[in-house]
Simulated assay, not measured.
Amino acid sequence: MKIDLSGKTAIVTGSTKGIGKGIAQGLAKAGARVVITGRHQQQVDELVKELGNGARGHALDLGTADGCSALLNAEPQCDILVNNVGIFPGGDFFETDDALWQNIWDINVMSAVRLSRAYMPKMIQSGWGRVVFLSSESAINIPADMIHYGVSKTALLALSRGLAKAAAGTGVTVNAVLPGPTLSDGFAEMFKQEVANGAKLEDLGVEFVKANRPTSVIQRAASVEEVSNMVTYVCSPLSSATSGAALRVDGGVVETPF
């Protein structure tokens, strides 16, 4: 099986670090012209240079309507849209104020709403396209200390399923990918002190999963590349019979076989 995305333009939001960066790298390796986004110009420029193959990048805030409009003006169309940008702050539900709820909603959900609404009609008109939403196992297995985050990821499941139905029979597929604990930059930041003291990130991932996600079947955190592999496949022509799906890369954390 060879994934060939030559000639395809792929936009990956929030792609200068973590899972988003891994997805951008995976799509670029498959031949896509990747458009990355981030908040900091230097990080954007560095990744564009690394990816090559006609990659482009934009430093903007997709948590605002103006930021989304700026991206749409700069990149009026694409073949593949990966709605990855998101934040995941912890916090007690009873102490989380409206401002944080709104910020999470604007970044995690409304960025995906705005960009999908703008790009999908052109994909449908052309008869081919891929839209992927980065949800999370937390969309199903809502964490008590991150209820606001879980709610935003559940919303992405509903959005992806609804848009898959809206695009039925057009050649455009829409899917959600649900990572579990992943050895991303964000995960490393959580344990930066332990790593600085000599601990290995992979070992910390095992400890975290066993303590906080004991239902995991693989009993470890996934690598960024493992998540990227799933996204790259579902963005390819080879995945043409997969749409409206919630594709889990959660290591079996969620206690359901389907």
Rank of each mutant, 00 (worst) to 15 (best):
M1R: 11
K2A: 08
D4P: 06
S6P: 04
T16N: 01
K17E: 12
K17T: 14
G18V: 09
I19E: 00
K21R: 14
Q25G: 00
Q25V: 12
L27R: 06
A28N: 15
A30C: 07
G31T: 09
R33V: 11
G38L: 03
R39P: 04
R39M: 13
R39V: 13
H40W: 09
Q41E: 15
V44T: 14
V44N: 13
E46P: 01
L47S: 08
E50M: 12
A55V: 14
A55D: 03
G57L: 12
D61C: 02
G67D: 02
A70Y: 03
A70S: 08
L72S: 09
L72A: 13
P76S: 05
P76K: 02
C78S: 07
C78R: 02
I80Q: 05
N84H: 04
N84E: 04
P89E: 08
G90D: 12
F93E: 00
D97C: 05
A99L: 07
L100I: 08
Q102I: 02
Q102T: 11
I104N: 11
D106N: 09
I107K: 04
S111R: 00
A112P: 06
R117F: 03
R117E: 12
M120L: 11
P121W: 08
M123K: 06
M123I: 04
I124A: 15
G127C: 08
G129E: 13
G129I: 09
L134F: 07
S136L: 09
E137C: 11
A139F: 05
A139R: 02
N141G: 05
N141R: 15
N141Y: 14
P143E: 06
S152W: 02
K153W: 03
T154C: 04
L157S: 01
L159N: 02
A166I: 01
A166T: 09
A166Y: 10
A168I: 11
T170I: 07
G171E: 14
T173P: 03
T173C: 09
V174Y: 06
A176P: 07
V177L: 10
L183D: 04
F187A: 01
E189D: 12
M190V: 11
M190P: 00
V195I: 15
A196R: 03
N197D: 14
G205C: 09
E207Q: 14
V209A: 09
K210C: 15
K210L: 15
N212T: 14
R213W: 12
R213F: 09
S216Q: 14
S216N: 12
S216M: 08
Q219L: 08
R220Q: 10
A221S: 13
S223I: 07
V224G: 06
E225K: 05
E226G: 08
S228F: 03
N229S: 10
V231Y: 04
T232K: 13
S236F: 05
S236N: 09
P237R: 00
P237Y: 06
S239Q: 08
T242I: 15
S243K: 00
G244N: 07
G244I: 03
R248T: 02
V249A: 13
G252M: 10
V253R: 01
E255Q: 15
T256H: 08
T256V: 11
T256Q: 13
P257F: 14
P257W: 14
F258L: 14
